[in-house]
């Protein structure tokens, strides 16, 4: 379970996250949406203990991130937007290394499970190659496996679908749905609104570090006066494109062409 209470992060004068509160229950998938620079990644980084909140706090499965971040990390798995992995380890070594850090008992059972994940995400054949030889998509898959290897109670994913092939993305969606239905708490950020619409039980839309709307799709529709799609709701709440400027640009471009 994730309970963010008045989470705030300031960088000097700039407030990146402004008194943000939300709760994600076990078995629930929550999508955090917002324009670029709205504070999604900063929020996630605070939950993960990579940044310390300026104000407020959060509890991860009951562990206060200010008081016991190591205990909180122990129940979390994280898939970053751009994974930076140890290039001179093989995929197999890296996942085992992560498993060691989470103190998962070594042995046949662990290895079988890792093997299963590698096969599931179609990367088993490359698991003995060094990570430096991986493509971006392969690195993300290994990153995801590393996040799943300790069977986290809370899974945080930042743009998990980026750079992954359609088959891989479909597999991940199924895995996440499965984990969620078994009681895992899933918090994800994405710019692909269809993914949020398909997968999330609840959606939070943040802008300039503040929560501007939160709820299930139906609740968001009601708030946005019956807008049909999440894209329409999102644009309605965060501001759509400036059609006048687009027309002006296209006109200019047309004149030049």
């Amino acid at each position: 379970m994730i309970e963010a209470q008045e989470l705030t992060k300031k960088f000097n004068e700039f407030t990146a996250v402004d008194h943000l509160s939300f709760t994600v229950s076990p078995g629930e998938t929550y999508a955090l949406l917002g324009p670029n620079g709205s504070g999604k990644s900063t929020t996630m980084r605070m939950l993960l203990g990579l940044l310390r909140p300026t104000e407020g706090t959060a509890r991860i499965s009951g562990h206060d991130i200010r008081k016991d971040i190591v205990a909180a990390k122990r129940v979390m798995g994280y898939v970053p937007e751009e994974p930076v992995l140890p290039e001179r380890l093989t995929g197999w070594e890296y996942v085992n290394y992560v498993a060691d850090m989470w103190r998962i008992e070594r042995g046949a059972e662990r290895e079988e499970e890792i093997d299963e994940l590698l096969t599931l995400l179609d990367i088993r054949d490359a698991s003995d190659d060094l990570i430096e030889t991986y493509s971006k998509g392969m690195a993300r898959k290994i990153g995801l496996i590393a996040a799943l290897v300790h069977r986290p109670k809370v899974l945080i994913l930042d743009e998990f679908q980026a750079g992954i092939d359609p088959r891989g993305a479909a597999t991940i969606k199924e895995v996440l749905n499965g984990l969620s239905s078994r009681g895992a708490t899933v918090l994800m950020s994405t710019h692909i609104l269809e993914i949020a619409e398909q997968m999330a039980d609840r959606i939070g839309i943040i802008q300039e570090g503040r929560m501007v709307a939160e709820g299930t799709m139906d609740q968001l529709r009601q708030k946005a006066k019956g807008q049909a799609s999440l894209e329409e709701i999102f644009l309605d709440l965060t501001g759509g494109p400036d059609m006048q400027m687009i027309a002006q640009y296209l006109g200019d471009a047309g004149d030049e062409g």
């Binding site: 993960l48 990579l50 990390k73 930076v84 590393a146």
Partner: peptide, 14 residues
């Protein structure tokens, strides 16, 4: 330290 993000999310203190 951003290059160590994968380590920083592990259950260890910074």
């Amino acid at each position: 330290s951003q290059r160590m993000e994968y380590l920083m999310t592990m259950p260890i203190s910074l």
